[in-house]
Amino acid sequence: MNPNLTLDELSVVIERQIEKQNESAQDDFCGLSPTQMGNWFDASFHQLQGVTINTPEDLSASPVMRYLTLIFDDAMKNDGSFKATAKGNLPAHLVKQASELLSEFAVSQFAGNISISEFAGSNEDKFNALHYTRILAEIAGIIYRRSGRYHIKKAAQAQYQKQGIHGFFKSMLDAAVSQYNWRYFDLFEDDVDLRMYWLFMVWRLQQHACIEQLTDEVITAFPYVLEQLGVISGCSLEKSLDILIESRFISRFLQFWGFVTLDPKQGFSLDREPRTVQLQPLLADTFHFTVNV
């Protein structure tokens, strides 16, 4: 409104307006500002703002961390390594020990036929949660395979002796959200990388525990996600995204870690009927959000 502003002065005004806009709460982001959302998108795991990620004192409810403990204990009894199978998988005795833990986890209330459980199996190929844990441990630089054996890195052995399994919680979680391929276990055809939205989705799910509401919030905040989506036969775009979020984020991330459980008896439907997850104490023990909305 001031015709006497110089270009430099006008640039300062524009910069201040942009900064004000970026710091303002946006309804499409459920009350977050673009600056806060940008941090959750781009910041490294240890530079996230508006959330504190803690290592819970009790990790016994986390399948991933319990399986990692078995891997450590088995290796530490044998000078830091153990023999892999001919296919390069974890040995049968370790798979058996991991399967026997199922009754101790919250997901056991939904356990049906062991042959199709993701938390038990006769070998690693049939035991998705254990296979996932082994992959994360390799990505996180904790274990490696050489000459037909799995080895725990020397630094990791020393850390385990000093801190126990708690010393690896954050590095494993970081590997899960920043490096692991969330499409690994499915055959869906799409270009959606849900890892980009992982912290936003954790925050929202803590508020309402509803998969369909979470999907709608993701679509509202990031409408371009629908352009990346391959439609699942017989489903709408929204339902297709429901399925991806349930499979990749709920079942094979949060549930593998012991953060939530999902009752499979709620069943699959082509309609978008509200489905809820059961939030487990480990979720609140790990993620403490301090965003003001």
Score class of each variant (00 low, 15 high):
2 N>R: 01
3 P>G: 00
6 T>K: 06
6 T>M: 06
9 E>S: 03
9 E>D: 06
14 I>W: 00
17 Q>T: 08
17 Q>D: 11
20 K>V: 00
20 K>P: 01
22 N>Q: 11
23 E>F: 03
25 A>G: 08
25 A>P: 05
29 F>N: 01
31 G>R: 07
33 S>T: 15
36 Q>F: 07
39 N>Q: 12
42 D>W: 13
43 A>T: 10
43 A>Q: 10
43 A>W: 05
49 Q>I: 13
50 G>T: 09
51 V>N: 05
52 T>H: 13
54 N>T: 13
56 P>Y: 06
59 L>M: 02
62 S>N: 08
70 L>I: 11
70 L>D: 04
71 I>C: 11
72 F>T: 02
73 D>Y: 05
73 D>T: 09
78 N>K: 14
82 F>Y: 13
83 K>S: 15
83 K>H: 14
83 K>G: 10
87 K>A: 13
90 L>T: 10
91 P>D: 13
91 P>W: 15
91 P>N: 14
94 L>V: 14
94 L>W: 07
96 K>Q: 15
97 Q>R: 15
105 F>N: 02
105 F>E: 00
109 Q>S: 11
109 Q>N: 05
112 G>Q: 06
116 I>M: 07
117 S>N: 07
118 E>L: 12
121 G>W: 00
123 N>C: 12
127 F>P: 08
128 N>H: 12
133 T>I: 07
135 I>N: 07
137 A>F: 04
140 A>S: 14
142 I>H: 06
142 I>K: 04
142 I>S: 05
143 I>Q: 00
146 R>L: 10
149 R>F: 08
152 I>G: 01
154 K>S: 11
154 K>F: 05
155 A>T: 12
155 A>P: 04
157 Q>S: 03
160 Y>T: 04
161 Q>T: 01
165 I>Q: 02
166 H>G: 13
168 F>S: 11
171 S>Q: 15
172 M>L: 15
172 M>C: 14
176 A>Q: 09
176 A>I: 08
178 S>K: 09
180 Y>F: 15
180 Y>A: 03
181 N>L: 08
182 W>A: 01
186 D>F: 11
188 F>K: 08
190 D>T: 14
192 V>H: 05
200 F>C: 05
201 M>L: 12
202 V>R: 06
202 V>K: 08
202 V>M: 08
204 R>D: 12
209 A>P: 11
212 E>C: 11
214 L>N: 07
215 T>H: 12
216 D>H: 13
216 D>I: 14
217 E>V: 03
219 I>P: 10
221 A>K: 02
225 V>Q: 05
232 I>F: 01
233 S>L: 02
233 S>G: 08
238 E>L: 02
239 K>R: 12
239 K>E: 02
239 K>M: 04
240 S>N: 03
240 S>K: 03
241 L>R: 00
245 I>N: 01
245 I>R: 01
246 E>I: 04
248 R>N: 01
251 S>N: 11
252 R>G: 01
253 F>A: 01
255 Q>C: 14
257 W>Q: 06
260 V>F: 09
264 P>A: 03
267 G>K: 09
267 G>H: 09
267 G>E: 10
268 F>P: 05
270 L>V: 13
272 R>H: 04
272 R>A: 11
275 R>I: 10
276 T>R: 14
276 T>F: 15
278 Q>M: 02
279 L>Y: 04
281 P>H: 00
281 P>K: 00
284 A>L: 10
286 T>I: 12
287 F>C: 08
289 F>A: 07
291 V>A: 13
291 V>K: 10
291 V>E: 11
292 N>K: 14
293 V>A: 14
293 V>C: 14
